[in-house]
């Protein structure tokens, strides 16, 4: 009878105590030269979550319903990237509104101070999870500060710079774009916020300020709102956003 084979990978890795110092996938053991099945499948699952997030579609109906509480018009817009494959290969198309979206924007009453744009980016999941809770904190603050808000724009297949065309179309002083960030293995639901003063097509990233990793396990909504509100106030005071708008309050 053959000896019973023990699985070396089932032993506790002697380095396990080091996991307290980093979220890196250390001390996962080995079977032969390879990664043991448990760690291998955990990795696969994390990647599956990230892939599902990249291919998640923004639920326009659900979001429109939930955004109704703010008593602002909600516009459903589409970029010129008509599919996820096109979105991934042609970043230029994701920065432009398609014709029907253009028409919608042109027909709005313009001249608000802040235009809020919500784009799926690389994770509609991030928008589903985070946007409503965040706006419930942010919009009352903006209104209390007497900032007029443009219609809320929901954009499918949108990139950050699409907020420039929308902001210009709505003649807003500042555009605030919320977008699903590229999913990582540790989180697939991170939302980013980008502020652009005097939005207009042709601006580059150095004209914006960004707050990243907004999610329950990252930067929580209340802290994100404090930072966004601070930056908006500073932007209006100094009439700019971007690399020259620094965080002097130590908030960022």
């Amino acid at each position: 009878m053959a000896d019973e084979v023990t699985n070396e990978s089932s032993f506790t890795d002697p380095l396990s105590f080091l996991k307290a110092f980093t979220a890196a996938r250390i001390a996962i053991g080995h079977t032969g030269a390879s990664i043991p099945i448990k760690a291998s499948l955990e990795f696969k699952l994390a990647h599956a979550h990230a892939r599902d997030a990249v291919y998640s579609a923004m639920d326009m109906e659900m979001l429109t319903d939930r955004l109704a509480q703010f008593n602002l018009p909600v516009l459903s817009l589409q970029s010129r990237a008509e599919s996820r494959a096109s979105y991934l290969q042609r970043p230029d198309l994701g920065r432009l509104l398609d014709q029907s979206a253009k028409d919608i924007v042109e027909n709005q009453v313009s001249g608000a101070e802040v235009s809020i744009v919500i784009a799926d980016g690389l994770s509609a999941l991030a928008i589903h999870e985070n946007i409503v809770g965040l706006l419930e904190l942010l919009i009352p603050k903006l209104q209390a500060a007497n900032l007029r808000l443009a219609p809320i724009c929901l954009v499918q297949q949108g990139r950050v710079a699409i907020g420039d065309e929308i902001g210009k179309g709505l003649q807003a002083v500042l555009s605030l774009v919320f977008i699903g960030e590229r999913p990582g293995l540790s989180a697939a639901d991170s939302m980013g916020a980008y502020l652009t003063y005097h939005p207009r097509p042709g601006l580059a990233d150095d004209s914006r300020n960004c707050i990243s990793n907004i999610r329950a396990g990252g930067l929580p909504a209340d802290l994100a709102v404090t930072k966004i509100f601070y930056l908006i106030q500073e932007a209006f005071k100094r009439k700019l956003t971007g690399i020259h708008l620094k965080d002097n309050a130590g908030l960022l």
Partner: peptide
């Protein structure tokens, strides 16, 4: 570690 760069994502 485990193919996953937790800084550069």
């Amino acid at each position: 570690p485990g193919s996953d760069d937790i800084m550069l994502n």
